[in-house]
Simulated scan of single mutants.
Amino acid sequence: MKKYLVYISLLAIISCNKSDPKVEASSSVTPERSVTLALVNNQVGKEISWKGFLNGKTPVFIHYQLDGNIIVGEITYLNTKNKLPITLVGTTDSDNNYRILEFEKSGNITGVITGKPAEGIFKGSWFSPKTRKELTLNLVKKDTVLPSKKIETKLDDVFGHYHYQYSEAGYQGDLVIRKFPDSKAVFGITSVTGDPARNLAQIDDDTIDLKTTNFTYKLADTDDCEFNVKFYKGFAVVQYTQGVCSGQFGMNATIEGIYMKTK
């Protein structure tokens, strides 16, 4: 991301190529005020489990927990040799639509799952930001009992570097937050759209009061460009609180999204 900072003045005036609705929509999150039907089926302290197929061929097992409109879980591809689980983090909206991102530890997003669970069945799709391939997803709810992992974090653990990218060519973002004395912190956010234009959205480093694991920030000299940053164990969620900060960033660029902690 550092290489883009050199060209801030240029990027601000570059017109972006038409954005990809699949990726752009996937990078957004739903405000916490949304009420989701998904919570009705979530047993306290237990994961929700599904099993099924991608494109009718690749067997997968998915489990997750819900915290408000945030989804945290794992997907396992059952046809792989080691069957290693892959981190899932996503959101639900007010109509109970799911949008879940499949993350590598580096913050690279290898898959975007969209769909809507209903009466023990989950029908949707899986999309690859790298290959642009989209596959159908059909799951059936399972009675597998898995205890929910702790996703809350401590204040001292929020500091560091967070990143996401929809492959090397897609949308990318970085959030950095550093600890300062007297309950202060310095944070900054930089994100760009997909190539070739790479339009920019940036929040310059600023000092804030930080006494909890979330904060709300309003961009100076604006009426409604405000966003909330909430930290979880291993990731952070940035979401607008009053619209999309129209006119503040490059075309189609946004700071909103889910950022994975990388260091």
Rank of each mutant, 00 (worst) to 15 (best):
T110F: 02
E74R: 13
L139H: 06
I71M: 15
S125Y: 10
F187V: 02
A25Q: 12
A201W: 01
K179C: 00
D204C: 00
V35W: 00
G45R: 10
Y7D: 02
N252G: 02
Q172K: 09
V112N: 05
I255N: 11
F231W: 09
K261V: 01
K211E: 07
V44S: 12
I151W: 14
Y171W: 14
L139N: 04
T262L: 02
K83E: 06
P85R: 10
K150V: 05
F249Y: 15
V89Q: 09
Y64A: 12
V6Y: 10
N214I: 02
Y259P: 07
H163Q: 13
G124V: 06
K230V: 14
E256H: 03
K141L: 11
V40M: 02
N55Q: 14
K233S: 06
E168L: 14
A197T: 09
I100D: 09
V89C: 07
I75Y: 03
T254W: 07
I13N: 06
V40E: 05
V60C: 10
A201H: 04
Y232E: 14
G45F: 13
T87C: 06
I151S: 08
D67Q: 13
A185V: 02
T241S: 15
L219W: 07
Q165Y: 10
V60N: 05
D223W: 06
D156V: 00
Y4F: 11
K154E: 11
T241H: 11
T241M: 15
Y259G: 04
G90M: 14
D95C: 11
E256N: 10
S19C: 03
Y217I: 08
T76F: 11
S15N: 10
V176Y: 11
H163N: 10
K22T: 04
L10P: 00
K22Y: 04
F180E: 08
G250P: 08
K154I: 00
Q202T: 04
D95R: 15
Y259N: 04
A220P: 02
Y77T: 07
E226Q: 14
Y259L: 09
C225A: 15
Q172R: 15
K179P: 00
